[in-house]
Design a protein around this nucleic acid. Sequence first.
DNA 1: TTAATAGTGTCTTTCAGACAATATTAT
DNA 2: ATAATATTGTCTGAAAGACACTATTAA
Lengths: 250, 250
Amino acid sequence: MTGEEEFLEGYDPGAYAPVAVTVDVVALTIRDGRLHVLLVERGGHPYAGWNALPGGFVQEEGLDAAALREVGEETGLRPGEGELDRVHLEQLRSYGDPGRDPRMRVFSVAYLAFAPSLPDPRAGTDAAGAFWMPVDEVGELAFDHAAILADGLDRARSKLEYTPLATAFVGTEFTIAELRAVYAAVWGEELHPGNFHRKVLSVPGFVESTGETAARAGERGGPKPKLYRAGDARLLHPALLRPTREEDIR
Amino acid sequence: MTGEEEFLEGYDPGAYAPVAVTVDVVALTIRDGRLHVLLVERGGHPYAGWNALPGGFVQEEGLDAAALREVGEETGLRPGEGELDRVHLEQLRSYGDPGRDPRMRVFSVAYLAFAPSLPDPRAGTDAAGAFWMPVDEVGELAFDHAAILADGLDRARSKLEYTPLATAFVGTEFTIAELRAVYAAVWGEELHPGNFHRKVLSVPGFVESTGETAARAGERGGPKPKLYRAGDARLLHPALLRPTREEDIR
DNA sequence: TTAATAGTGTCTTTCAGACAATATTAT
DNA sequence: ATAATATTGTCTGAAAGACACTATTAA
């Protein structure tokens, strides 16, 4: 008896139905102060013509590698050329309801990707058909991708509170105001500039000063802001908590 | 062309290698004031004789259902008989490194289960071979299960901070001291009784009074404590934070 | 000049944590 | 009686949020 036969012995025949494993990516970035998600328009059936999250089969690679490959393919970015290396990836969760894909049993491992503002994917060749859309304009999506997107947004909003995730959405050098704009875009609410400024600088390891000052102030005036880069903290202590909403608690 | 043929068209042949999807469960409970995890001793190869997390193939069911089925099979509990219904389940994350199972490509969706103290699984028939082990006595595990267990413990310790998860480890009615014992067991450190007591009662919706008092005080004296049941909060605001450890932050 | 912004200061309230005090109960 | 525990009270320092103020710069 081979190892594989032994492996399969004694299990329900239902387990032998062909299954597929895919990765789907919720890739987020901020453009013009608004949170955007990377989508693709489906060509084939089912859901032909619908928008969907970028994704595909896991090949001879790990899950993280598969997710990074998908992001690269759909954005047209190449590994080692800088921009793709700055994309932060983390696993979101997996989805496997029977019937979520009408053709066969498909399990999807969803990933979250965070990136600074990226060029439009249409420029590339592979990436034709992919585009960034403001998250508040996303309507229906193919399969269960709307639920996956919702879970991804929840996770992103939550992680801004207790991790330095916001720095993944800005360049290597940034101003406190740019960081505040990230929080405003992801949380969908304005933050008090003065309190936010003092808070960010008071959290150890969140940001560190470059000693430099921006070459120019904002379009509507004001002093030239100081520049910062991401610090070495993996967690924010104390955390930057959202205003408490009663409906989130109960 | 059938839908499935169309579906598979154009993908790398590597994607056609047979794959399997399993669920593995990190089931935690507290016995004698210590955190325990449910393990099984493997019969067949590979890793024959090693301890492993309970798990198995996903059948014609959702992922959550598969995880609950595994817990039931390995503990000997039956749905609808009460105890299994009190088990709290949540998805942990998925693992899919090539080579994590030497026989074929196996993707595992790991789950976390939290339960009040349960009877010893050996009593049942299906569940022979399963047993509870204190987490700090768990040595090597089969496959990548040690890493899965470590991830599960991290998640559990973290969720105690900002969710009412601790109430899943005690009976429907409990004392503040019992709740404190849960935190002490999971976090591995003692908590200040007075401050913990005031803190728990001050978080809206964490616990609610039953109006009753325990029939008996503890073994070593003291007043009869009041009884509480879980409240309706899904999140703790403000949270019950662990003492900050510098090494966790950087 | 005007208006907006960067950055800092102040005050109030909330909360975490250290510590103390009192009442109650098993042994 | 003794010792341990449940519960409440007090105090200090950290931190959040509201508000105010000054200096700086684009238009």
